[in-house]
Nucleic acid binder design. Structure first.
Lengths: 333, 333
DNA sequence: ACTCTCTCTGAAACCGCTTTCAGACATTGT
DNA sequence: ACAATGTCTGAAAGCGGTTTCAGAGAGAGT
């Protein structure tokens, strides 16, 4: 592998000059610049990243820690991050936390060892206080995506989940539904709590009393949604619509409804949340609240680049607004 | 940040000794080792990756180039890779090719610049010959996953797609179907051609004549599957079952069948391929041929580690066998 | 007691780049 | 013509590890 020395000798200049034309850090006369470029070309020289990083103490890479790489949602976030940083010639190092706080911690430490220039976290299991601690103690910029933590709000990119929950619920209210069930996510998760809050807020706005028996916890998974729906049906609470706190639990709920002989949307209307890939594929296609994962990943990456002083971007959106995606799972009552 | 010098001074030994206890590259007396470990602990010392890489010319990272990070299938591959290499303390650098050969090439070059220790490619657009060239010219180990290229077979981890196509088709034959349509992938892709070959082979085994009018090209996307199914219906070729070459095109086909007023599986049986996430979520749940993406990613990673001499693994499976996943989209005729 | 191993150890070179610093040269102003 | 300024340039000192090499000391064998 040719080194900068080889280039400098071939071009009959010093290594410093080669470095300067490579990085544009100082003016170089036209003739020397051309000689250097020719030599680089000729030798097919590629600077050694390791040496460069050692000298500059910059890795030109960003680390991303996500819950699960193979999930459509988190994959979109990663894709968003990637698109932004590759544009700046930076690489992306990934690791996943598998929704377990111990794994999240060790992955976090693991990524820090690599000394990426910044870190973007999308994790669920670690609680707010710990996360704040991590961010505070880190000597590199850390951004949080998909979650709002007030103490470090300026480092968070998040969706307005309260509004999202309200949008979903309002949509059902507007279609004439009054008995609206809710399949909630785990109370531990702020996202889930916020969506529930939005649900209650929309109900209150419409003067519909909040009825606890219409709410069941399903978690954010299909199976949980299935069981929550079974429970709601057993309770005999009598509802005409359901707002599931994410698309996966909506899919589970759909399955349970179908097994109970109820048709969607004819007998029961259903709204999901997230607008994952699967929302299209379900039958009926799921009306849901869209969360722009890729854009959120991009925003997080931009913020990271900004705190590195690489990006001079004017303003980056940190708070994203949910949008209702109307499909076929809601009928007017 | 403390350096190895700080550690050596605090422990009253040379840097060489610290390095030795860090890497276990040479025996160190018990007393010194303990002094060193204590100093490391005390200073919270973390070796500088850049310096280490520069000295050893190893990055302790593996690069993965995948078609699309946000796809469930490719995400699973990445997850498989990650699980294996993190176990060995190595990091994963990712980039995506977006199914465009120019992007694939530039991403490939981009990853090489980073000097990861090995590269794992899962890409569609670049053709076999170019890929062979890339692998041959690279000075680092390159593995291919999800694709078989005979010239570099030993670097490929792949599914036996011919058998897969045959399994799907045989399943329909066994259920009494004789007029079996096929929604093919793009002829450009070996995977697609192989699945078609498997389809024809199974038909031949059962003495069912191959009928060209029962085959339509749908590509590996939902929309393509939808249109291919429309075309098949228009042709009026009269079939009782369909083998779609992947789950996405099966989903599209399902939609078209439903719009045509045909019920699955009562009127038409349907088999997909890949066993993506969505196969569960479709209604009826899709019977499909499973491709073990995560395991294939793991295998590719193991092979990479083996060619780096890191892993002493005995034997790694490179050829994976497809498995039929029976669900609800097939009925006996 | 003396050599011969064997086990540890530290000094120093090296990995390939960036950056400082001082100086060479050309240009400008007076 | 001379000083003052500005533009380029190269030597050399890092960056923080690993590894070679030679040597010190301990134990074994005669």
């Amino acid at each position: 592998m040719p080194t900068i020395r080889d280039v400098s000798q071939l071009a009959k200049v010093s290594q410093a000059t080669v470095s300067r034309v490579l990085n544009g850090t100082a003016p170089v006369s036209r003739s020397k610049r051309e000689a250097v470029l020719a030599a680089i070309e000729r030798l097919a020289y590629q600077p050694n990243t390791f040496a460069r990083s050692l000298a500059t103490n910059r890795s030109h890479a960003i680390g991303a820690l996500v819950s699960e790489l193979s999930s459509a949602a988190y994959g979109d976030i990663v894709r968003g991050i990637e698109s932004v940083i590759e544009e700046r010639g930076m690489h992306l190092v990934v690791s996943s936390g598998h929704a377990r706080s111990d794994v999240e911690l060790s992955s976090f430490e693991f990524l820090k060892e690599r000394r990426t220039d910044a870190l973007i976290l999308q994790i669920d299991a670690t609680d707010d206080d710990d996360l704040v601690e991590w961010v505070r103690k880190s000597d590199l910029p850390v951004m949080i995506v998909g979650r709002l933590i007030h103490a470090i709000e300026e480092r968070c990119v998040y969706l307005d989940n309260v509004t999202g929950g309200a949008i979903a619920t309002r949509h059902l209210l507007e279609r004439g539904h009054r008995r609206i069930a809710h399949i909630a996510g785990l109370k531990r998760l702020a996202d889930a709590r916020d969506r529930l809050t939005g649900y209650r807020r929309a109900l209150a706005e419409a003067d519909v009393a909040y009825d606890e028996s219409l709410v069941a916890e399903g978690g954010f998974i299909e199976d949980g949604g299935y069981r929550a729906m079974e429970e709601l049906l057993e309770r005999g609470a009598g509802f005409t619509a359901v707002f599931a706190s994410n698309d996966q639990s909506a899919a589970g709920a759909l399955k349970a409804l179908r097994q109970a002989g109820l048709r969607v949307p004819d007998d029961v209307s259903l709204v999901g949340f997230d607008d994952l890939f699967i929302a299209h594929y379900l039958h009926p296609a799921l009306t849901t609240v869209r969360q722009p994962f890729a854009e959120m990943g991009q925003a997080a990456a931009r913020l990271a680049l900004m705190s590195l002083g690489i990006d001079e971007e004017k303003e980056v959106t940190r708070r994203f607004e949910p949008v209702l995606m109307e499909r076929d799972s809601v009928a007017a009552r």
